[in-house]
């Protein structure tokens, strides 16, 4: 029973982290409808950039924040390119856009392998390696730091989307592009900005990724399952749903990990995703 309780607590921490690595996709795929299968690869890219900066002695979280403007620019460039080459031309955009992002996944993966090799990479910080004991439960400090940052990140993005003018415009563009155009806003520029924000957030989430554990270039593949599972579970585009869905996934994975062992863990997110697509593709919290 204690084991199960530990698993649930650990799963809660992990779940908030999963929400943080997925919010970028909630915006990019859930709101903007971009088939961004390369999102997890961007996440790993963020983790590697953090690792590089950490090599110069920068704290990984500071590194993640430092990365955000660069990732923002990267995201805006990627969206612009995607829009010009695929979205604007219509008809075949779905097929080609998907193939494009799938190609990008492998370019990033192999690029990282060629530059840094296939070895696992770690970051160093004061809070990594220590843990906090509460009763019999031992909580690694790195998980707690990632948990806190994940909450701040997710809440911050949710506030941005609901409280600011641009944020509300981003939500509006997801619902009715024509209405937005009538109001005098340029939907393409808003989407470009939104994709930039999503990518910036993903950069910081990449820092969290390497804080909670070692990272290697092809780790993005399991995160395809985790991030898409969270976004679909949440009901495309819902921020509060993303947090809840992340927690559901985190706890499920943690329980499976405790009961069946680590080798089954990757199947949890993909299995949950598949079940959701089969029975309720509009998500748990969607209409």
């Amino acid at each position: 029973m204690d084991l199960l309780l530990d698993a649930v607590i650990f799963g809660l921490l992990l779940g908030c982290f999963y929400a943080a690595v997925s919010v970028g996709l909630t915006v990019a795929f859930g709101l903007l409808d971009v088939p961004h299968i390369a999102h997890p690869a961007f996440l790993v890219l963020g983790a590697y950039c953090t690792w590089l900066l950490n090599g110069y002695g920068l704290d990984p979280i500071v590194a993640g924040i430092v990365l955000m403007p660069a990732f923002m620019a990267l995201g805006m460039a990627v969206y612009r390119f995607y829009y010009e080459t695929f979205e604007r031309r219509g008809s075949d955009a779905g097929l080609r856009g998907l193939a494009f992002f799938f190609g990008v996944v492998f370019i990033i993966e192999v690029g990282l392998i060629l530059l840094f090799g296939v070895d696992q990479r770690l970051v160093e910080a004061a809070y990594i390696g220590k843990s906090l004991d509460i009763g019999d439960t031992r909580l690694p400090l790195r998980m707690l730091v990632a948990f806190a940052m994940a909450l701040i990140l997710t809440a911050g993005l949710a506030l941005y989307l609901s409280k600011t003018f641009t944020g509300r415009a981003i939500k509006a563009v997801a619902q009715d592009e024509t209405a937005l155009r009538l109001m005098g806003a340029n939907p393409v520029r808003i989407k470009q900005w939104a994709f930039g924000i999503a990518t910036a957030v993903t950069g910081l989430a990449g820092a969290l990724l390497i804080i909670i554990g070692p990272v290697e270039p092809t780790i993005d593949r399991v995160y395809i399952g985790r991030t898409f599972c969270v976004v679909v579970l949440a009901g495309l585009g819902s921020m509060s749903g993303t947090l809840l869905a992340g927690i559901i996934l985190g706890i499920s994975e943690s329980i499976v990990l405790t009961m069946l062992g680590a080798s089954w863990a990757p199947a949890v997110s993909f299995g949950l995703l598949l079940v959701m697509l089969g029975i309720r593709p509009q998500g748990l919290f969607g209409r």
Binding site: L95, L98, A267, F270, G271, L277, G278
Partner: peptide, 24 residues
């Protein structure tokens, strides 16, 4: 399971099948 849905859901489902079968 997924061909009733939009194309991207089918695509993601096929990745999911790969990982699940590999894990099994």
């Amino acid at each position: 399971l997924t061909l009733r849905l939009r194309g991207i859901f089918f695509s993601i489902a096929t990745v999911a099948i790969t990982i699940i079968l590999e894990t099994a």
